[in-house]
């Protein structure tokens, strides 16, 4: 798998084909009485066909031999993964842990991602932003943020 387009076209082909097949399960009906899966069947089938077209056109591109790794070469992908993990953990703990605590911890770790500031500065800024956002969204805009262990 040398070409990113080849990889993405295979993923899209599988996605499109599965959508079309699943739509058949829902029932595509007929032209006079279209079923639940009618439009998704055609969208899925078209996606699969276009993915095939992309796949074969990528085979014809001789000069483009960069691998998937090239897409991330020179980039700090670890930071992306780290931020994604932080976001997922935050989402998982938000209800039980509550907005103030989870947000403070999230911001503390996010501000540290680039490592540009010291721990004390980060702590103070995280605390300030958490308090300000709680005040704005919970108190002023009446968004019902989870209080979690605080309450």
């Amino acid at each position: 798998m040398s070409n990113p387009d080849r990889f993405s076209s295979i993923v899209c082909f599988v996605g499109g084909a599965m959508t079309a097949l699943w739509s058949l399960k829902y029932g595509i009906g007929s032209f006079s009485e279209p079923g639940v899966g009618f439009i998704t069947f055609f969208a899925g089938a078209m996606l699969a066909l276009l993915a095939l077209l992309l796949f074969f056109s990528s085979l014809r591109e001789k000069g483009k031999t960069d691998g998937l790794r090239a897409l991330w070469a020179g980039f700090d992908v670890k930071k992306v993964l780290y931020v994604l993990v932080l976001l997922v953990v935050y989402t998982a703990l938000l209800r039980s842990g509550g907005f103030p605590l989870c947000t403070f911890l999230l911001l503390f770790f996010l501000f540290r991602v680039k490592g540009a500031y010291g721990i004390w500065t980060t702590l103070v800024v995280s605390l300030f932003v958490t308090a300000a956002s709680y005040l704005v969204f919970q108190e002023w805009l009446q968004v019902q943020l989870p209080r979690g262990i605080l309450g």
């Binding site: 999230l106 996010l110 501000f111 991602v113 680039k114 800024v125 932003v129």
Partner: peptide
Amino acid sequence: YPILFPLILL
């Protein structure tokens, strides 16, 4: 940007 992006995410 180290200050800005956490705020956007929040």
